[in-house]
Computed example of a mutant assay.
Amino acid sequence: MAIHTDDLISCPARITLDAAQLAFFNELPVDAPSVQTELSCELEQGHEGSHAALGQQADTTMWWIQWTLSASEINPFTWCPVKQQPGVPDRDDLECTLFAGHSGKHSSTRRSWHSEEAA
């Protein structure tokens, strides 16, 4: 599979993390920027299922906050395996920056939403 370059609109949903969620992210053993208290959904507009935003990355695990109108939770995921240009060693702007198994279309680090195509 490859990432296609037609721009789409991202989901406008936002979440404000509570004190327990912020404490969880801040206790992860990782040298990373401070966690933002308000996050935007990183999936494409009109996606199915819960909203999702990357909270923190620790080694190869990405901790994503997922939420609906009634609940939220933090879940560990790995990177989505879809690549824009197979065989290129640098992940910047070349691979989907979402989690494996995400709903909807794929995204590059430019936050443009892309449709999936066969490689």
Rank of each mutant, 00 (worst) to 15 (best):
S112F: 06
L43D: 00
H114R: 13
G87A: 09
H106K: 07
A20W: 08
A100P: 00
A118R: 15
T109M: 14
H102V: 11
E27Q: 12
C41H: 00
D93I: 08
M62V: 04
H47G: 06
P29Q: 06
H47N: 11
A32K: 04
M62E: 01
E38T: 15
L8R: 04
L54C: 10
P86V: 08
M62S: 14
V30N: 09
T109F: 10
T78Y: 10
V82L: 12
H51N: 06
H51R: 09
G104D: 04
L94E: 01
S108D: 08
L69R: 13
G46P: 04
A52C: 08
C96F: 01
F99N: 04
A52S: 15
A19E: 10
H4P: 02
L43V: 05
F99Y: 15
T78S: 12
N75P: 01
S10D: 05
L39W: 01
W63R: 03
L69V: 07
D59G: 15
S112T: 15
E27N: 05
T16H: 07
N75M: 13
H4V: 11
C80K: 07
F99L: 05
I9D: 11
E117A: 13
H106D: 01
F24S: 08
V30Y: 00
R111C: 10
H106I: 05
A71F: 08
P29I: 09
L17W: 01
S112M: 12
V30I: 14
C80Y: 03
P12L: 08
S115L: 10
P12G: 07
T16R: 14
L28V: 10
R110E: 05
E95N: 11
K105R: 08
A13H: 01
A53T: 03
P29A: 13
N26P: 03
E95M: 15
L54G: 02
E116F: 12
N75D: 09
C41N: 00
C11W: 01
H51E: 06
H106T: 06
D59E: 15
P81Q: 02
P33Y: 05
F99D: 00
N75Q: 14
L98H: 02
V30M: 07
D31W: 02
L43Y: 02
S115T: 12
G87F: 04
F24N: 01
S115I: 09
S50I: 05
A71D: 14
A71L: 11
T68P: 08
Q36E: 14
L94F: 04
K105S: 03
G101Y: 02
A58I: 05
P76G: 03
L22P: 02
Q36Y: 04
